[in-house]
Design a protein around this nucleic acid. Structure first.
Length: 344
DNA sequence: TCTGGGGTCCTCTGTCGA
DNA sequence: TCTGTCGACAGAGGACCC
């Protein structure tokens, strides 16, 4: 979807069309979730501190995110997609991989999907078609908004040879910087780099992966269901907190929120963890695994509390989080599933 | 006014038992 | 009985994604 959150907001406030609109939180430490294409011209982009966005674009219209609404709209959009294509892998609210293998007219199908999303939801999207998820993803980003780009692997290699390596998903700022440090500034250079050298610099796995991605080689399947491994709740404070009792109180609230969600979905996990970001932005995690999976706040809370006390932050804390990992379906959910199987 | 929230996956290291 | 090796697993940190 093109600038999805902004586009959804513009349906509610059409008078803002054409203006620089920025979806961002309210607090002093908020970041930009999405910026309209008008706002991007001022240099505003996702994940940028909202304060910086305000300085770059003082005339921007700032809107608070409404994730519940985005989830709802996303569900309808994905419903339209699934009405045309059987195998769909949703990625977040606003992206999906579609397996078009075997469709008699894949291009025409995608034109229809876009037209239907536009007609029913008033939202535009961009399409990339290729022999793999990697080619499709990069192609879909190439001509946003309302892009429709079809590429073979060889065409992708040629078209993006001079682009920076970070164009490819999986190569982030850190890896890109390490590549620049050894003189690799384009995908073409990365594709031509000796695999042995990449392996020596980045390790055997990452080295080989970088080489493959630069050549747009990818055979990962479109998977319809991704199993959830962990769930967490975290919060960044408007002001750093040093008082241990206040941290413990907030931790208890986070545990309540997390466990409420876990119990509602009938899941539990064996590993309880906490996350602490100090005022120097260093991030620390502590975890403890239990013999049995837990989901209830009465079970998770004491473990998280003990981890926090044992860590004993030496500096003021700016973020506190709690996490349950190693998730599995709880006993209740299993019984429900068994019941359903029996009923069928 | 620096740097969200909710995730996944990988790497490294230490421990423990076979 | 002692020592070395190996795999499994847990914990911590970090890179990356939307």
């Amino acid at each position: 979807m093109d600038a999805f959150y902004v586009a959804v907001e513009l349906r509610r406030a059409p008078e803002l069309r054409g203006r620089p609109v920025i979806v961002a939180g309210n607090g002093p430490r908020a970041v930009v979730t999405t910026a309209s294409y008008e706002a991007r011209r001022f240099g505003v982009g996702s994940a940028m501190p909202a304060a910086r966005a305000r300085r770059l674009c003082p005339q921007g219209v700032f809107v608070s995110p409404d994730f519940a609404h985005y989830r709802e709209v996303s569900g309808r959009v994905m419903g339209i997609v699934r009405g045309h294509v059987e195998r769909v892998e949703a990625v977040g609210f606003d992206e999906a991989y579609l397996d078009l293998t075997g469709l008699p007219a894949p291009h025409a199908t995608m034109r229809m999907v876009c037209a239907e999303i536009e007609r029913q939801e008033g939202l535009s999207c961009s399409v990339g078609i290729g022999p793999s998820k990697l080619v499709a993803k990069v192609a879909s980003d190439a001509e946003k908004p309302r892009g429709f780009v079809v590429l073979t692997r060889e065409q992708a290699c040629a078209r993006f040879a001079s682009a920076p390596p970070a164009l490819v998903p999986g190569i982030g700022p850190k890896t890109a910087a390490r590549l620049v440090a050894i003189g690799i500034e384009s995908l073409g250079q990365l594709a031509a780099a000796p695999p042995a050298e990449l392996a020596a610099r980045f390790g055997p796995r990452l080295g080989a992966e970088l080489h493959r991605r630069a050549r747009f080689e990818d055979d990962t399947p479109v998977c319809q269901e991704r199993r959830v491994v962990s769930e967490s709740r975290e919060t960044t404070f408007d002001r750093d907190i040093a008082d241990p009792r206040e941290l413990e109180r907030i931790l208890a609230q986070l545990v309540e929120r997390l466990c409420g969600a876990l119990e509602q979905s009938g899941r539990s996990g064996r590993t309880v963890g906490i996350k602490i970001r100090l005022d120097d932005f260093s991030t620390h995690t502590r975890a403890h695994s239990l013999p049995q999976p837990v989901a209830a706040a009465e079970r998770v809370g004491p473990v998280a509390l003990e981890l926090l006390r044992r860590f004993g932050p030496r500096r003021p804390v700016r973020l506190l989080g709690v996490r349950v990992a190693g998730l599995e379906r709880g006993v209740e959910a299993q019984l429900t599933l068994l019941g359903r199987q029996r009923d069928q």
